[in-house]
Amino acid sequence: MGRRPQPKNQQGHKSLFPRLYGRHAVFAALDNPDREFRKLWLTPATAKTLDLPPGINVQYGDDHDLGRMVPTDAPHQGYVLEVEPLESVWLGDILAAAIEDGKNRPIVVLDQVTDPHNVGAIMRSALAFGARALVTQDRHSPGETGVLAKSASGALEHLPWCRVVNLARALDEMAEAGFWRIGLDGSAEVELETAMGKTQPVLVLGAEGEGMRALTVERCDQIAKLPITGVESLNVSNAAAIALYAAARRGL
């Protein structure tokens, strides 16, 4: 398993390593045994709120000092943590675990969803509703950044995230493992709950506006829609949350 590609100057600073900020994102990272820390910035006030891991490099400053470490106006809350990117999860491991436990937990696939706020929010919902993993393509998707981690509110540290080179091939592997691939599209005739049935679903969502690419649609076993009225479509993170809730409630 290789490391995820390191983001290049995506957060308004010169570091080539992700800088996480905000209480939830930083605390979740500090509690993650798989994280490697490079440097932690705190204010005198926030330094009193946590027990520091041994050996971590800590620097102190005021709110303005920490503000220079992150994007303009980012709500750092007095915590900034520079980290090594997490190791990428191998799709084969995710599928093997699914075959072993037999539980109908969904996998979420994002096709060229590029906004880190949306990806982070989808991670948060995926973790909350028991998804197995998030799968994105290496290209045309955001890297591990402070913006994404802040939106994920800690889920980045817990939800398996698999980044693949070829999304179509990954969808083929999921089908071979027994997953039912459902693409979400508002023009579909069948509603999601009907399409899922008792299957082990893969929920595929495309970019806002453009939707799923043609090659991705070809790999889906079924196209389904959410049961919404009064609006043409939803933000992709809202759509993902509703779809994940629908998948989770089948076990209630």
Rank of each mutant, 00 (worst) to 15 (best):
K150E: 12
H117I: 11
A128G: 13
T114S: 12
V119N: 01
N118T: 05
S153Y: 11
A121H: 01
P142G: 13
R132I: 13
D115K: 03
L148H: 04
F129Q: 12
S153F: 10
L148K: 02
R132M: 14
A152I: 10
G143C: 11
S151L: 08
L156E: 12
P116G: 01
V147N: 04
I122S: 01
R139Y: 10
L127S: 04
V108I: 09
D115A: 02
R132D: 05
D138T: 12
Q137K: 10
Q112H: 06
V119S: 01
A133R: 07
A126G: 06
A131F: 14
V135L: 04
M123A: 06
T136E: 05
S153I: 10
G154W: 09
T145Y: 13
R124T: 06
I122Q: 01
R132N: 10
L127R: 02
A126P: 10
A121E: 06
G154M: 12
G154I: 09
T145P: 14
A131D: 15
R124E: 04
V135T: 06
M123C: 13
A133L: 07
G146H: 08
T136W: 03
V109L: 08
S153E: 14
E157M: 12
K150A: 13
V109Q: 02
V119L: 09
Q137H: 08
H158M: 15
V108E: 01
F129Y: 15
V135K: 04
G143H: 07
A131N: 13
G143I: 09
I122G: 02
D115Y: 04
V147A: 08
V108A: 12
D138I: 07
A126Y: 00
V135A: 10
G120R: 00
Q137V: 05
Q137T: 08
V135Y: 06
E144K: 11
S141A: 15
A155W: 03
S151P: 07
E157H: 14
M123Y: 10
V147C: 09
V119M: 11
K150H: 14
P116F: 00
Q112N: 09
H117F: 06
G154H: 09
D138C: 15
D138Y: 09
E157Y: 13
A152C: 13
R124P: 03
V108Y: 00
L134G: 07
N118D: 04
G130D: 11
A155M: 06
S153C: 15
A133V: 10
G130C: 14
H117C: 05
F129C: 12
S125Q: 03
R139K: 14
V109S: 05
A149S: 15
A133D: 09
V108M: 13
D111K: 00
A149L: 10
A155S: 14
Q137D: 01
Q137R: 05
